[in-house]
Design a protein around this nucleic acid. Structure first.
Lengths: 266, 266
DNA sequence: TAGTGGTCTAGACCACGTG
DNA sequence: ACGTGGTCTAGACCACTAT
């Protein structure tokens, strides 16, 4: 019976409940934020804090509605957006789950390389090295660190059907990825992002990429088994976790003979 | 007062209205389609048929609700999805409008080339030619035509800050783009897609791109003022209009020194 | 002041997955 | 049979824009 006047402003308390008439407060609007956005923020907090871990189910909509003292519809809209952002996954009849880079076939989401026939081929990773060093000015800036802060550098090759196709250089903040060694990398089965999520509690949410065509430097050409000067796709990626905090810088060189980078404009 | 049992199946008629008790029909579900999806389809039809043209305002939600005999909430959900698909644009307080490639700053949506400093630079087009010819087997297949069907071929250069940066070869179905000539192209001010929409009633909805790094062929290199063998970004695009019908094949070569192709993974 | 989209609620029912 | 997400409705109120 409560008539809930769309919340007055920021505070979560949506309105006194239990009354029969539209509550007082006429609702001001400097810095107005919809209720469902606030709920979205609260759910995100629980995700970030690890209250609900990747792969786990979260409380049902009705349960969350009663917890936050809002209607189910409001929780629904919050979850809708989080699902659109790939933070949650809805499964009808079962429940809503925290998205994960594990089991998921969310591989292609971050490596959009297809064979010329349009088929997504499986790939294997060959680790070259994993060192700890101090961030260059450039890497520090991109990772939002101070210059000379500790970072981890991983180099690896990806092979598709036995063909060496990708060379990756991956920089990670040393503080977050304390204890990351070549051995642990080699032991882990599955995608890198799945490992980061499971072993280091750092989940990649989104990324931006700068793509160029470049001529292969000799050192890169050697590793990829192409002649020096060979045209390669250069992919510079910055990945972000909760709160849009950058937690990975990745420089990739792709051999695009027999494979292409797929992109959809919509 | 009508209790509307979520429609029984396909037909649009949502339910007999005016009764007080949940209508009979227990609702079967082979090929079940939600009401709002059907409304979405009807609105799309009106867009495709030109009942509401690009840039124009469409009827208000309440008006559409009464036209389709559904609640405003159902229309709202349909429009929400169409807005997410970039077919409609909502503007609070004003109304809902048909998306357009004109005035819009929807330029960057289909040409994601930024300068190294991250700034989006304006570009000018220099038309090289516009011929009519018969489709090759390959182009015919991609445009869903029969081989030797008439097609239009446009070649052009794009210059950013005076630098020649992009070479485009564009194939269009001849039947749809009857009357497209070099002169008309030169006369038209504004983006190509805006012209296609205004002059030929064909609106590009989405596109897929295959991206590779290639060595510049001599003929291409000449036009782009780079040496033969220079690494270029090869972008093969297929664009689609309503009903996912392909209506453009575009082969682009980008010089990515000083510029990069921006992509967001999310 | 009027009209439009945007938010919020409450309740009913449907479709899906599991016991 | 039950619980979960998914759909649909109806009505109230808020925020923005134009007149």
């Amino acid at each position: 019976m409560t008539s809930n006047p769309a919340s007055t402003a920021n505070p979560i308390g949506p309105a006194a409940s239990g009354e029969a008439v539209p509550a007082a407060v006429p609702a001001m609007s400097p810095t107005f934020s919809p209720l469902y956005q606030q709920i979205k923020g609260l759910i995100t907090q629980s995700l970030e804090s690890g209250e609900w871990k990747p792969g786990e189910i979260i409380p049902s909509e009705v349960e969350l509605a009663s917890r936050y003292k809002v209607s189910q519809g409001t929780v629904r809209k919050a979850i809708d957006e989080l699902a659109a952002d790939n933070l949650l996954v809805r499964r009808q009849g079962k429940g809503t789950f925290v998205a994960t880079h594990n089991e998921d076939r969310a591989q292609f989401r971050f490596l959009r390389l297809l064979a010329d026939d349009g088929v997504e081929h499986p790939h294997v990773s060959r680790l070259l090295e994993c060192r700890r060093l101090r961030a260059s000015a450039d890497i520090a800036r991109q990772l939002d660190l101070k210059p000379a802060d500790p970072v981890v550098l991983i180099k690896r090759l990806l092979q598709f059907d036995g063909e060496t196709t990708v060379l990756d250089e991956i920089w990670l903040p040393g503080v977050v990825f304390r204890g990351l060694t070549l051995e642990r990398l080699q032991e882990y089965k599955g995608p890198l992002y799945a490992m980061f999520e499971t072993e280091f509690g750092t989940r990649m949410i989104r990324a931006t990429e700068k793509i160029r065509a470049v001529a292969a430097e000799p050192s890169v050409a050697d590793l990829l088994h192409v002649p020096a000067g060979f045209p390669l796709l250069s992919v510079e990626r910055v990945s972000y976790t909760y709160g849009d905090r950058p937690v990975e810088v990745r420089r990739g060189w792709y051999v695009t003979t027999g494979y292409y980078y797929q992109n959809d404009l919509s």
